[in-house]
Simulated scan of single mutants.
Amino acid sequence: MTTPQPAPSFDARPLTDPVDARAVSAFTAELRARGSSGFSASSVLAVVIFGLVFLVALTFVGATMFSLLTGSGGSSSVAGIGILAAAAVAISIGVVSWRRARVARYRLDAFARANGMSYEARVSDPRLPGMLFGLGRSREATDLVRGTVPRFVEFANYRYTTGSGKNSTTHHWGYVAVKLDVPLPNIVLDAKGNNGFGSNLPASFQREQILSLEGDFDRYFTLYCPEGYERDALYLFTPDIMARFIDNAAELDVEIVDDWLFLYTQRKASTLDPATWGWLFGAVGAVITKLDQWERWRDERLLQENPTTAASARGDAPSSSADPRLPFAPPAGMLSPPPGVAHEGRRLKRSFSWLPIVFVIGFVVFWIWSRSF
C-alpha cells in the first residue's frame, strides 16, 4: 500500500480574499453579455416566491394561534402586517442569495485564472458520456472550472430533474471529468465509503459484471466491467493504480467510459472551500500520473471485427483473390489493433430494479384485501 499523496500546491487565496464590489459587477455584466450568467433573474424570483409563500403561510398560522389564545378578533390586521413583513423578508432573502451567487462566481473565476484554468458559469445539457448525463430533464452543469495541462480536466456541479409535478425531484452531483488519450472499456468503481443502505449510483448494473480484485481493493470499491473484459480490467488496475484509488479516491465513485474518466460525488465539486479543492486536486493528480499504461491498452477483439487486420496479426500471407486491392502486406503499424473498444465492451449492462414494482403490487394486494373485509 502506498502512502497518501500530498495535496498539490495551488493558489486558494481568490476563494477567500476580500472582493471589490465594482469588479464583481463588471464580471457579472461580462457573463451576462456572453449569455452565461449562472444565477438568472428567474432564479432570484423563484427564491423570493418560495420564501414569500412559506412566510405567508407561517404568518397565517401565527395569526390564527394568536387569535385563539387571546380571544381577540384582530387576526386579520395581524395577518396583514405579517404578510407585509413576510414579503420584505422574502425579498431580502432573494437579494442576499443573488449577491452571494455573484460573488461566488467572481471568486471561482479568479481562482481558475490564478491556477492556469478557465471558468464558465453554466452549460445546459453537457454532452458527456457518463452515467449521470443522460438522466432526467433540465440537465445543467454549473460553475465549470477547466484545465488543459497536463490533460483536459473539468470540475463542475451538476443537476437534473426526474418525475413530474409534486413528485419531481432535483438531483445534485459534483463531478470531475478527465480526458483520456484512448477509449477504454466501460468500467465503474462504486465506492463503498459513500453508500447508505445501498449503492448511491444513479444507475444499477448486472451483478454478473462484478470483478473481485486482489488485496484490500474490494473493501473500498465494487468494480463492474463488461463480461469478457476481466483480463483487461486486471491490466488497467494494477496493484499500484489500485493503491492510488484507495488512498486518494475512496469516497468518490469512478466511471471509465469511452475516452473519459469521471469522478462523482454527491457534494459540490466546484466550491469556495479550499479543502475540497485540495482533496479533488490530490485525487486527480494521483490518478493521472499513472495513465501511461492505460494509453498502451488495445482491444484484441477489434482484430476479429477486421479480418484483414487479423490475418496480418497472425502473419498469414495476404490473399489477392480475397482482396485484390491489397497485393502487399500491410505496414507493421497495422499488426496490432487500433485504439478503440469492441461493441461488447463499450457499455456495461444495466439491471432493472424490481423493488418499486414489488412495492406497488404489495400495496394493491393489501388494498384489495382490506376492502374485502
Rank of each mutant, 00 (worst) to 15 (best):
F359M: 14
T308Q: 04
W367M: 08
E214S: 12
T276P: 08
R314A: 09
E30P: 04
E344W: 02
P274E: 03
L144I: 06
V96D: 04
L15D: 08
Q5A: 15
V360L: 15
V61L: 03
W98V: 01
A110S: 15
G147M: 07
F205L: 06
S351N: 11
T16A: 11
F197S: 13
T16D: 12
K179S: 15
R102I: 00
H171R: 12
V19C: 10
V254S: 04
R99N: 15
T148H: 07
V365C: 09
D125M: 04
W369G: 09
T169F: 00
T59R: 07
D11L: 02
P239R: 05
S42C: 04
T265W: 01
F352W: 15
G345A: 07
A283C: 02
R100G: 02
G333I: 11
A90P: 02
V364Q: 11
L236N: 07
S168N: 08
N200V: 13
F50P: 03
Y119H: 08
M131K: 08
L348N: 06
L272M: 03
R347E: 14
A311E: 05
F221R: 00
R13D: 11
A233G: 01
I368T: 14
S40I: 04
A329C: 01
D190A: 11
T276C: 03
K179F: 03
D292K: 11
G285M: 00
K349Y: 04
H172V: 03
A41D: 05
V341G: 14
L291R: 10
F155Q: 04
I288F: 02
E295H: 13
V365I: 15
S319H: 05
W173S: 07
P126V: 04
G285L: 00
V95N: 13
L302W: 03
F237V: 04
V188K: 06
F39D: 08
F133G: 09
L184Q: 07
V47W: 01
